[in-house]
Amino acid sequence: MLDGLASHIEHYMDLLSVRQKLVASNIANADTPGYKTRDIDFQQEFQSAIGNEPPAVIEAPGLKIKNDGNNVSMDRESRLLAENALRFQVATELMRSEIQTLRSAIQEGSGS
């Protein structure tokens, strides 16, 4: 019933949660010597087959490494934190409207 668009939204939300977890992990390790920022290639993961495989975690490229070998950029992480939360909100609203469509179909059927 809920296929097509809904499964895409589900995949999108899954990827956003994985990314948000990595962001939380990066923020927690902002002061850990030698820790390298972890991320996923969002575009590529989303375009690759809407699949069951867990996304590949990569080291975020192009970040400046500090003296203690840590390269967590708090600006980057706070931007991603806010961005992921907002994207997730959009996805849940889309999913809600999908569910609403299905629900109204069910209710119209019972009315007659």
Binding site: L16, Q20, A24, I27, A28, E77, L81, A85
Partner: peptide, 19 residues
């Protein structure tokens, strides 16, 4: 910064529950 991360993730969970 960690508190901000908790707040953001909590919002995401709340939005999922609201579905």
């Amino acid at each position: 910064a960690n508190v901000a991360a908790v707040a953001a993730v909590k919002d995401m969970i709340q939005h999922s529950i609201d579905l």
